[in-house]
């Protein structure tokens, strides 16, 4: 059963018809965590706003819970939860007042769905009389998630929920999402962080208003077409330049403190490269084949 069906959705803005979302299609199954991974400006937020009935698409159609986002927007608003990328709760109301407010607006109470937010809310409880605007970044995210959950939505839309949140809070946040998934809530989450991609059941890689691939993270990694090598020496920039200079058939890019590279042709001898690099005085050179990460896949998809 599909929770979200998107068929050829397009959205453009302004006179010069700047394209934000271009003919995007995918389906999200009930109870899965579906990640939309892409850099800033890829069109993730526009897509989310179409799916949450805030933005009218210029083409295509989309269904959430079997309801059309254009025609049945009223019913959709009853059943979905949305957490915008920008903190959008009332900063001058306290934690408890915000939660209470959103519960009432959805004609429910905190008590009724307390089990859903319990794990998050216990961390917020000590600050419940604090104004939302005075919370730390991580706490704000937790409050926003609580408010988006308080009416027990069937589908949860999280637009870059972990942007600007510290690594520990990010980890906790993803643990919460796993728990919510077990409650049967479908989660659509967008993020610019590649490391979060592996935490999703399936991901869609989005770039320049288009979707490049939709797969499970493992399948995307498995479909990596080439052999990947990593290299490391004292100076990464120099190493990168030398590897690039060696052959036109090589594609190299910096990856953390390493340099990752692939070959266009299989015939190239890695040992030749090694000797060449020794000649270039990269003495502490370490070079070996590596398992591609989602980020490598994404970089290669962008090149294609």
């Amino acid at each position: 059963m599909e929770a979200v069906v998107v068929k050829g959705i397009s959205k453009h803005y302004g006179k010069d018809r700047f394209v934000a979302v271009d003919n995007v299609s995918f389906t999200v199954n009930k109870g899965e965590i579906f990640g939309i991974i892409g850099p800033d400006g890829a069109g993730k937020t526009s897509l989310f706003r179409v799916l949450t009935t805030l933005l009218l698409p210029d083409g295509g159609e989309a269904m959430v819970d079997g309801l059309d986002v254009v025609k049945d927007f009223k019913q959709i608003r009853q059943t979905i939860g949305y957490m915008p990328g920008k903190f959008s709760l009332y900063q001058d109301l306290t934690v408890e007042e915000n939660l209470n407010f959103f519960a009432t607006v959805f004609k429910t109470t905190i008590k009724e769905n307390y089990h859903l937010i319990k794990d998050i809310y216990v961390q917020l409880e000590p600050f419940k009389d604090r104004r939302a605007g005075k919370l730390s970044g991580g706490m704000k995210q937790k409050l926003a998630l609580s408010c988006a959950l308080i009416h027990k939505p069937t589908v949860l839309f999280l637009d870059e929920p972990t942007t600007g949140v510290d690594p520990v809070s990010r980890k906790e946040f993803w643990q919460m999402l796993k728990k919510l998934k077990n409650e049967g809530i479908t989660i659509l989450v967008s993020t610019p962080y590649m490391d979060e991609a592996t935490l999703c059941d399936r991901i869609a890689l989005m770039q320049k208003s288009e979707i490049l691939a939709i797969e499970t993270p493992q399948a995307i990694i498995d479909s990596f077409p080439k052999e990947l090598y990593k290299a490391k020496s004292v100076s990464t920039p120099a190493l990168l330049n030398d590897i690039k200079a060696w052959s036109d058939d090589i594609y190299a890019y910096p990856f953390g403190e390493n340099v990752h590279f692939t070959f266009q042709k299989e015939s190239i001898n890695v040992e030749e490269l090694r000797t060449y690099l020794y000649e270039k005085e990269h003495h502490n050179l370490e070079m070996e084949p590596d398992i591609p990460s989602i980020e490598d896949c994404f970089i290669h998809l962008l090149r294609a």
Partner: peptide, 8 residues
């Protein structure tokens, strides 16, 4: 207003 708009 964004958060209000997605509510019923």
């Amino acid at each position: 207003i964004e958060q209000i708009n997605v509510t019923p």
